[in-house]
């Protein structure tokens, strides 16, 4: 049986309760929207990019604890990083949450993001964890249509 404590770790509950970087960037250079219409999860990601470095990043939206915490952890992780690094993290994160339930999480590369590894045991919730990342990816690659992970 999947472990609820794995999914709802303190880190996740904390980031859900007080999300970091929950803000709109008025001077954002890149913006994208993500929406999972069946869930009702909605997110807008704002990025201020300078010389391919994420100088600032914020998000707004509503959704479950997993999507909110994922967005909060994501923005904390990519702030100050180059877009290449951010895309690498995106891939590592994606691999982590879509790996089988028993695959080890590469916590060295992912740092605090590894807190979301528990999602792997809850296939119905992977899309919640992924939505902020796909939205960030869309912002960085200039996708104008809202993205979805459903």
């Amino acid at each position: 049986m999947a472990d609820l404590r794995e999914l709802y770790q303190q880190v996740i509950l904390d980031h859900n309760r007080s999300p970091r970087n929950y803000k709109r960037l008025p001077d954002a250079s890149h913006t994208a929207e993500g929406t999972n219409p069946l869930c009702g999860d909605e997110i807008t990601v704002y990025v201020l990019l300078e010389d391919d470095v994420i100088k600032d990043v914020g998000f707004q939206g509503s959704g479950c604890a997993i999507s909110q915490a994922s967005a909060s952890l994501m923005t904390s992780a990519v702030k100050g990083r180059g877009t290449d690094e951010a895309e690498q993290l995106f891939r590592a994160f994606h691999d982590m949450v879509t790996a089988g339930p028993d695959a080890p999480a590469d916590s060295k590369a992912l740092g605090k993001l590894a807190a979301l590894a528990g999602v792997r045991q809850f296939p119905a919730r992977v899309k919640c964890a992924n939505l902020p990342w796909h939205t960030l990816h869309a912002a960085l690659t200039g996708v104008h249509e809202p993205v979805s992970t459903e």
Partner: peptide, 23 residues
């Protein structure tokens, strides 16, 4: 209060309880 419906659904599911969450 303070808990999104999907999180309720996932936790109830662990107890064998099937409810619908969403819109």
């Amino acid at each position: 209060d303070g808990v999104h419906a999907h999180d309720i659904g996932t936790i109830l599911d662990q107890e064998g309880i099937a409810v619908r969450t969403g819109h």
